[in-house]
Amino acid sequence: MSSAHTTRNQVYGWLLLTPAAILLITFTHYPAIATLAQSFFSTGTVSRPSKFIGLDNYRSMLEDEVFWKVLENNIWYAVGTIPISIAIALLMAVWVNGKLPLRGLVRMSYFTPTILPMIAVANIWLFFYTPEIGLLDQVGALFGFASHNWLGDTDTVLGCIIAIAIWKEAGFFMIFYLAALQTLPPELEEAAKLEGASRWTFFRRVTFPLLMPTTLFVLINAVINSFKLVDQLFILTKGGPDNASSLLLYYIYEAAFSFFDQNYASTLTVVLLLMLAVIAIGQFVILDKRIHYR
């Protein structure tokens, strides 16, 4: 092949790649790098232009009490939502995978919360949590409980947010487990039955290990979602009271668009991304060895 021909091929290649490359660079790579760069600069005003301040933004972040509070909230939010939603998802999947009257309807009902937008979900739950007239208080009143301001109490607000996230996520994860369960050959269960294995033994020794690839996938998604899913805060609490329900991403939003501190928001974003990366890598490294891939 002549060298002119090779060059022409290369040009064609690059031309074909260009549209996608432009979009990717404009909306993904450039913002990511710009964010990282911005975190090393101070926020400029009219009188004081932005200037390079090194790690000062990170230093002030470490001294920011709200940051620590929000991080703590986020950790509790993750700890509260991830295991419970995965466990419920698995339970529901195993249940609707069996023979069941109205199976299609049950599966759909479980999946419905997933297709609802989070904003709509928050509005539904707002009705549940409203003091006096909300569903929770109405039902509580029947049993003689006093009215409680669920979202206005710093002790209960985060729990309320967690409950919504579990309700919304479990159905989504169920679909993955259901799909995985349906790829398991039924003879495995029959073989175990002949050996006298109970349903629990079979689940523990066979089903669960074979679902591990799905579990890893779901786990990573759950972790990412626990840092990503903050829409409900806009409707329900705006992070309050006293930052008791604020989460990291919501705090980033506040820093950027309420306090107009773009550079501090960039700093927080970099920290969030680093945390997610470390968690995801950790999960792969630790769990991958124990997983059987077919």
């Binding site: 050959p185 003879e187 495995l188 029959e190 073989a191 175990a192 002949l194 050996e195 006298g196 294995a197 033994t201 020794r205 066979v206 290990p209 074979l210 059987h292 077919r294």
Partner: peptide, 26 residues
Amino acid sequence: SMVFQSYAIFPHLNVRENILFGLKVR
């Protein structure tokens, strides 16, 4: 005992664990 057409071997267990599955259950 039964031998299945598809063998119904547990893919995540090694040969030893597969053979011993029933004995461990019991």
